[in-house]
Design a protein around this nucleic acid. Sequence first.
DNA 1: CCAAAATCGCACTGATTCAGTGCTGTTTAG
DNA 2: CTAAACAGCACTGAATCAGTGCGATTTTGG
Lengths: 149, 149
Amino acid sequence: MLQLTKRTEYGLIALTHLAARAEGGVVSVREICEAYPVPKRLVAEVLKDLCHARLVDSHRGATGGYSLARAAETIRVGEVVAALEGHPSLTSCASLGLAAGSTCGVEHVCPIRSPIETLRHELWRLLNRTTLRDLAQHPAPLAARTAAL
Amino acid sequence: MLQLTKRTEYGLIALTHLAARAEGGVVSVREICEAYPVPKRLVAEVLKDLCHARLVDSHRGATGGYSLARAAETIRVGEVVAALEGHPSLTSCASLGLAAGSTCGVEHVCPIRSPIETLRHELWRLLNRTTLRDLAQHPAPLAARTAAL
DNA sequence: CCAAAATCGCACTGATTCAGTGCTGTTTAG
DNA sequence: CTAAACAGCACTGAATCAGTGCGATTTTGG
């Protein structure tokens, strides 16, 4: 549907909140969902997944919480998306090809494959040009960096 | 889910097939789904929607079919996506804002809004840089045009 | 005029995915 | 030892999507 899931959205919000903390700052899920209108349990579930993906570190116990595993400027939006909903594939053209063997055995190979692959790749690059630091400082920074377009 | 729907995928395949025809060439749904492993009825449904969106012209009757409404190089992938699944919104951050009034009444405005809006815009530009003609000639052309990235 | 081919329009069903929650266990500070 | 917080698993309801059914209308060609 060409849209990020709520999980990814919550993940980005939570990570941005973590990025606002000083280095290694630990933030509990409770604090995050007191700051934004987001469901606590879901955010917790998402942060758990981000922990598995090594994007955040977890700290258990009464004063526990989560902290960024790396510096905010080294965590890319693309990584977050990949961790929470897998690599974007844009289309299942590939599966069309697989349906009839290695090549679409009908008349042509799927005519869309190669250019859509390129689109997918460009989308990926776009997501990976934006880091958590960019998200953390509101005024959209990406536009300046891609002014050539 | 950051993925195009099957409808959009079929639409792009069908449009690419139409683009391979000489100008104004009329192609029936039957011909399209004999050329690719795609379900006839679904492709017909999609082409009907594309007709409503004025991207193709329909021709009824025994020798009827569809033809491109404009030149292939003027039909952008973004238009096709918009016609078949609406404009991509990436996130529903906006709805988060609306949930508590015009501004997220909790503590901050959604911290993600502005940068994600920029991402959305860039994605849109990406889709609109690619035309049907680009899809029709296999060797991916977009890469050459955005080599600067 | 008639039969075949094709689009048109609406609506339906099953499958998949997602959002959100329940429950229980484990860890740690005070 | 109690409370707060994370860990893990699995479940339910809702939304969206893929694909199809059915009948009507239009047009070509005999």
